[in-house]
Design a protein around this nucleic acid. Structure first.
Lengths: 197, 197
DNA sequence: GTCTATAGGAAGATAGAC
DNA sequence: GTCTATCTTCCTATAGAC
């Protein structure tokens, strides 16, 4: 096999690991399955990573970094707040529906991380990051629409983060689009009600 | 070892399995760990269960059946709706805080079930059950407080289920009591707003 | 039904030739 | 750095004595 930098190999293995995890679940992502997916010999694993735990660390960090920053989307400045709220919620929801397996993986990895002493903190940082993304997002909506939120923005962000997390988890299990959309609309209406008048 | 009915042994193993899963996670609940926890010899496993998968099926069903039906608690007939709403939400939250590991296990098992073709349906039934519990609960609150809900009760139930699920998951990761309570209060206020006038 | 012993394989990790 | 061969451990499951 052609010589490559160790970093390139690591990349290759991390990506292969993520593919395996998405397809078969975290539990099935053995070193053998991963190197097989990457088309590398088994021995390659341990001169790229000291241990499987080290690879998992890399995988988790990669997933977090690449994780959904809800895009505001191409909405014109000065749009009405309710429209802005709905357009961003639907954008988020489309992301979930487009790549459900990826999001399922984030939940699996968070659970997994909680069980590994060295990884629990990564999960905590992930959720702090998610919260911050939501805070920023609510702020951006308020600025673009020229409104203020009636409730403390951090509380609002946590409320929304939790609802969307639960919605996603529930949908990953029952795949009931209609019910999910109804709940999403209820949340949109809740946000409408949180616009300070 | 004294002779016991096969059913009693099965019970014993299911309970041991749950203890191991709560303590060490689903992945670590090997047949050896389970029989060890139950104080039984390894061979006991396979004349109680055809396979490990069969045990997992029993474990999941047990967990679902025993899972939280939010108790309405000792609230007097005719109590004000907002009080009733808060008292039941706090009761739920106390349940979570009392036994976090048990609830973490339900999430782990749901994820696990999604990856096993034969078990995915159990997870679906579980969530249907949760939804029904929430519907019944909202109905009971309305009856006791003598109010009507302004929104379709199924939508309201799903919204609440999803929020509480996300809240729990988030708290299991960051254990931030203050933030969780703020979000819970925000949800209580949302429900106040859903009382038809 | 109960238990010991063991089969048979897959896991993570390493040794050592190239 | 790269790869094959192998070590050790742990897994699920079974065979067969009692």
């Amino acid at each position: 096999m052609a010589r490559q930098s160790a970093d390139a190999r690591r990349e290759q293995l991390v990506e292969a690991a993520i593919r395996v995890m998405i397809r078969d679940g975290v539990a099935k992502a053995t070193t053998r399955a991963i190197v097989g997916e990457a088309g590398l010999p088994l021995g390659a694993f341990h001169y790229c990573f000291r241990s499987k735990q080290e690879l998992l660390h890399s995988v988790i960090e990669r997933i977090m970094l690449g994780s959904v920053a809800i895009p505001l989307g191409p909405v014109e400045e000065g749009a009405a707040a309710p429209d802005l709220i709905r357009s961003t919620l639907y954008t988020y929801w489309d992301l979930i529906r487009e790549r459900p397996e990826e999001h399922q993986l984030t939940y699996e990895l968070a659970q997994f991380a909680l069980r590994e002493p060295g990884l629990a903190d990564v999960a905590r940082r992930q959720y702090r990051h998610y919260l911050q993304v939501n805070v920023d997002h609510l702020q951006a909506v308020a600025e673009r629409a020229g409104i203020r939120w009636a409730t403390d923005i951090t509380v609002l962000a946590r409320f929304g983060l939790n609802f969307l997390d639960g919605l996603t988890l529930n949908w990953l299990i029952d795949r009931d689009d209609a019910q999910a959309l109804s709940a999403l609309d209820a949340y949109a209406e809740y946000l409408d009600g949180q616009i300070a008048r």
